[in-house]
Amino acid sequence: MNTDDEIIDDKAHVRDKLDFSDAEWITSTDDLAEPGVEIAFVDGYVGMRNGADPEGPVLVFTPEEWDAFVAGAKDGEFDEP
Score class of each variant (00 low, 15 high):
19 D>S: 05
11 K>Y: 01
31 D>L: 04
50 N>V: 04
34 E>T: 10
58 V>F: 04
42 V>D: 03
26 I>W: 08
50 N>R: 09
11 K>E: 06
9 D>K: 02
76 G>L: 06
33 A>K: 11
62 T>D: 09
66 W>R: 02
21 S>H: 04
20 F>W: 15
6 E>D: 12
72 G>D: 09
10 D>N: 14
50 N>A: 09
53 D>A: 13
40 A>Q: 04
54 P>K: 15
25 W>S: 05
64 E>V: 05
48 M>T: 08
73 A>L: 12
28 S>M: 07
35 P>F: 10
23 A>T: 02
47 G>A: 05
59 L>D: 11
28 S>H: 08
34 E>Q: 09
20 F>G: 04
36 G>F: 06
35 P>G: 06
58 V>R: 01
69 F>C: 02
21 S>P: 00
75 D>P: 02
1 M>S: 13
6 E>W: 03
50 N>Q: 10
67 D>H: 11
37 V>A: 15
47 G>F: 04
16 D>E: 15
5 D>K: 13
50 N>W: 03
15 R>V: 05
81 P>C: 10
35 P>R: 04
46 V>T: 14
7 I>W: 14
51 G>V: 11
62 T>R: 02
11 K>S: 07
60 V>A: 09
71 A>N: 11
19 D>H: 03
23 A>F: 01
17 K>L: 14
49 R>C: 01
51 G>W: 02
20 F>S: 02
13 H>L: 12
31 D>E: 11
67 D>E: 13
32 L>I: 07
64 E>Q: 08
12 A>V: 07
61 F>S: 06
17 K>I: 03
59 L>W: 07
25 W>N: 02
44 G>R: 02
50 N>P: 00
68 A>R: 10
7 I>N: 10
36 G>K: 04
80 E>R: 12
65 E>T: 03
49 R>I: 01
32 L>Q: 09
28 S>R: 05
33 A>R: 10
50 N>S: 14
6 E>P: 00
53 D>V: 11
33 A>D: 15
75 D>S: 15
43 D>R: 10
29 T>D: 12
43 D>C: 05
45 Y>T: 07
29 T>N: 02
65 E>V: 00
16 D>Y: 06
8 I>E: 15
22 D>H: 10
64 E>P: 01
61 F>R: 07
43 D>G: 09
79 D>K: 03
81 P>Y: 13
49 R>Y: 04
24 E>K: 13
51 G>Q: 04
35 P>L: 02
59 L>S: 11
49 R>A: 08
37 V>W: 11
25 W>Y: 09
71 A>S: 11
49 R>S: 01
66 W>I: 06
18 L>Y: 04
7 I>V: 14
43 D>N: 13
20 F>H: 01
60 V>M: 10
59 L>P: 00
80 E>D: 14
23 A>Y: 00
56 G>K: 08
5 D>Y: 09
26 I>L: 14
54 P>W: 01
47 G>V: 10
67 D>S: 14
38 E>T: 04
43 D>H: 01
48 M>F: 05
53 D>T: 09
